[in-house]
């Protein structure tokens, strides 16, 4: 019997993360990375940010925003190293580091958002 590949599972995470990254990350970087620091738009107050983050739906949103794009990164970065730099002999190490990083980031996001107070 042939061994089942996990590739479909990881590809689904990659694809879901790609959609989240494409639709949500540009506006987040534009607002928090450029518009607020450079004074193009009035930055929201600490209180307003806390009020938003206290909402359960915003926490779920932020959890998805952090977690799925990390799995998207893990998949793409793994194959960039694999094809681009041709480091095929390090395949297992790269796999562990990429997906390990995504899992660590997901756990951190869950911890931070759970304990936001």
């Amino acid at each position: 019997m042939e061994r089942q590949s996990n590739e479909a599972f990881f590809w689904t995470l990659f694809s879901a993360g790609g959609v989240i990254a494409a639709i949500l990350i540009p506006v987040h970087i534009f607002l928090f990375g450029l518009a607020f620091p450079l004074g193009w738009l009035p930055a929201p107050s600490y209180e307003h940010m806390m009020a938003l983050v206290r909402l359960p739906v915003v926490r779920i949103y932020l959890f998805v925003l952090c977690s799925l794009p990390l799995f998207h990164w893990a998949h793409r970065f793994r194959y960039t190293l694999f094809d681009g730099l041709q480091v095929k002999h390090l395949n297992e190490v790269i796999f562990t580091l990429c997906y390990g990083g995504a899992v660590v980031g997901t756990v951190l996001a869950g911890y931070l958002l759970w304990n936001m107070g």
Binding site: G17, A21, I25, H28, I29, F32, G33, V53, L62, L65, C66, P69, L70, H72, W73, H75, R76, F77, T80, G101, G105, L108, A109, L112, L113, M116
Partner: peptide, 17 residues
């Protein structure tokens, strides 16, 4: 390589949180 900057965004967001 855009995925590297996607990951960088997540790291900055976690630091911000």
């Amino acid at each position: 390589l855009s995925s590297v900057f996607v990951a960088a965004f997540v790291v900055i967001t976690l630091l911000q949180l």
